[in-house]
Each structure stands twice: as C-alpha cells, then as structure tokens.
Design a protein around this nucleic acid. Structure first.
Lengths: 210, 210
DNA sequence: GTCTATATGCCGATAGAC
DNA sequence: GTCTATCGGCATATAGAC
C-alpha cells in the first residue's frame, strides 16, 4: 500500500501536476459558461489531454467542478483572514479594499465562479457558508465592533459594512463587462485601478469615520 | 392579413397571455440554472403547457431566453431612469438606493438573470450595454457632476458612484444566499430591509457629502 | 496511464395528424 | 393551436485493449 501516507504525497508529483493543469483549464470555462454550459470535451482540449484521460483524474464532471470550487475558496477567503485587530481600523479597511480589488483584477474568473455558485443558491457551498465562512465573519465582525466601541468607527452594522466591502470590490470583476462597456476601462489598466481604489476607499472610509 | 396592425395588437390577447405565462415560468429557472442548465421540458411543465406547444410560441430555446432578457431589462433600467436633476442630490440618491433595494427584494430573479448574463460576458446584451445603457449612464453622470460642481456633493467620480450604488444594492439579491447564511435574514424581512437601507444609505451618503 | 470504441441518456427541434 | 411520435445530435461515462 503506497497510498497510506499523508494527503500531500498520496499522488505522484506528475499526477498532481496534471490535476492542476486540468483545473486551470477548467476555471475560465466553468466561470464563463457554468457547469452545464461547459463540456468535458472543451476542458480536455484546453488542458491538452483526452476526454477519457481527464475522467481518469476526475471521476466525473461534477467532481471536477467541486474540486475547482474548493480550490478557489482559498483565494477567496484569504483577504478576509488577513483582517486583523492589530491594525488601526482605517488602515485595516483600506488594506482590505486593496486586497479585494487586487483579487478582482488578478483572479476575476475565481470571483465569477464564486458568484455563479451564489446565484444558483450555492448548492455545493451551503455547508461551507454556514460553518467556515459564518465563523470567520463572526470573528471579523467582532473586531469591527471593537473598533466602533473604541470610537474609531461610526456606529454602523459590521455585517452590512462587510457586505458593502464585498459588493463594491467584487463588482469590478463580476460585472467587468458592464464596467468596460460604460467606462471603456478595466482593472488591468493601472490608472483605472488606482482611480477605482481611490473612489471606493473615499466613499467607504468617509462613510464610516466618525 | 390580420397581422399587419401595430406591434401590440399583432397577436391575439390570449396568445400574448400565454406568452407571458411561459416567460414567467422561465424566469426562475433560467435565473437559477442558466440557459444550458434549464431544459425546455421543465419550463413547459412549470408553465403547464406541452413542450411542442411552447415551441409554437417561441421558435427556439434561445429565442425564449432573449425575449426574457429584453423583458426584464425594463425593470432593470427603470430606477436609473427615475434619477432626476430636479431633486436635491441627497434626496435623489437616497431615493435611488431605496428603489434599487426594492427591486432586489421584489425581483431578485431578474437581478440574478442580469448578473448571470454579465458573468458570461453579456453575449446577448453587448449592444444594449454599449448604446442604451451607455447613453443613460452618460446623462445621469452629467447630473451627478452638476451636483458636484454646485457643491452639493464631494468631488467623487460619478461613474464609480454609480458602480458603488449598483453593487451595494444588487448584492442583496445576487448574493442573497450568502447574506442569508451569514445574517440569517433576507430583504423580505421588513426589519432587515429597513436596517439594510439605513446602513447602505448611511455609508454612501456620508461618503459623498462635503 | 492512455488509448479507441461504444454504451446510454437527454434534449432541442421537426413532421404531420387533427 | 395543440397533439403524438420521432429524428438527430451531443455529452457523460464506461469497457477493454495496450
């Protein structure tokens, strides 16, 4: 039994590499066309493997989709985890906005796939939302509430502040097409990125300082 | 030729009624599962017509989808059209937030379908975005800029203000599942609706007043 | 592990009677 | 306008050789 070691070494390095290649190929397709709008054939083609070979690494289409979701959840939650009480309130929130806008710029497809999942009622993420995310949010809400109690922030509802932060930053990824249609720019443009950061920061920070 | 009259009377009243029934049945399904995730069979079943009969009223699945999108675009743009220079800046923006939150509460599926279309790169709406929406936004941006020039608002970028308004209000519809998982509530709860309105209003209005 | 061939099922759309 | 029957295509998944 060579498969009894730790999870990380369960599969050979080559196999894991191939899995990652397939996952990378799947992300842009699933995020744009959804689970049902994407055929395994196209994923396989994009990953440069045969369809049967793909099904050797992932037992089913849904298994591939789930693996992808779990993968990106990491990217997704990272900025929130970085949120710390150690910092000054304003500095922390400014930093959070920057981090989230950076994710919107560098991982728009991850943001979109997450959004897609939410639209569908998060059938595969319900549990994660109710446990891991809920707990994380509770922790961070407490930090925000602490800042409010300390007089560093105006008395707003921490939850709604988080919703506002998420909404305003993710919008530039999820609605990127609309933003581009109207402004003619997107976050890849350094000037537009800075302008977006300044405006979002300005509105929200002014909105929550005493 | 009884079909040569105005568009509104092209079809009999009964036929138009049936079309609307089918469209109503299609909205929740398309908005949740997308174009490819929804079968005509299910739409027909939900509308209580046969699949062939459905295809008599809409020549193809895509035609039905497009008809639906055009339908909801109306609902979608209505709040922005109501935005008027006649009003005081703060009053107008507060009213706009209320209108948009009302749409998020009463037409969450329309909001979701629109969002879904955006995620996919708006293949069917590109033209509308680039013409009708672009023009509408240009008009309303000018109004906002007018308020800024008159010293009624802080000097923020009108476009980013609009993006922020859209993002924060639509979030409660599009990410309704996440909001529910974390807060345990949704906009149908009158108390939560008011709380949401107060918080969004507070953050944004304070963020843009001089 | 990777291939060819194929089983199997679903779905969009059409034909044609009534 | 509405029905029954069915065609044709596509996509997931499996069987089995190598």
């Amino acid at each position: 039994m060579s498969e009894t070691k730790a999870s990380a070494s369960r599969r050979s390095r080559a196999a894991n590499q191939k899995r990652r290649t397939i996952l990378s190929a799947a992300l842009p397709l699933f995020s744009q066309f959804g689970l049902h709008g994407t055929s395994l054939e196209r994923v396989a083609e994009s990953a440069d493997v045969s369809k049967t070979n793909l099904l050797y690494y992932f037992p089913s289409k849904e298994a591939l989709y789930i693996a992808l979701l779990e993968d990106l959840l990491e990217v997704w939650l990272a900025p929130l985890k970085a949120f710390s009480a150690q910092q000054d309130a304003i500095t922390a929130i400014e930093h959070y906005i920057l981090l989230k806008l950076t994710v919107s710029r560098d991982h728009p497809q991850a943001s979109k796939l997450f959004c897609l999942e939410m639209l569908q009622g998060a059938p595969l993420l319900t549990h994660t939302l109710n446990t891991a995310l809920k707990q994380l949010v509770d922790e961070k809400s407490a930090i925000i509430q602490g800042w409010i109690d300390a007089g560093q922030l105006a008395p707003i509802d921490p939850l709604h502040l988080l919703f506002t932060l998420w909404a305003t930053t993710q919008h530039y990824a999820d609605f990127g097409v609309q933003v581009a249609a109207i402004s003619g720019k997107n976050l890849d443009d350094p000037v537009f990125f800075q302008q977006t950061f300044d405006n979002v920061k300005r509105i929200i920070i002014r909105g929550i300082t005493c």
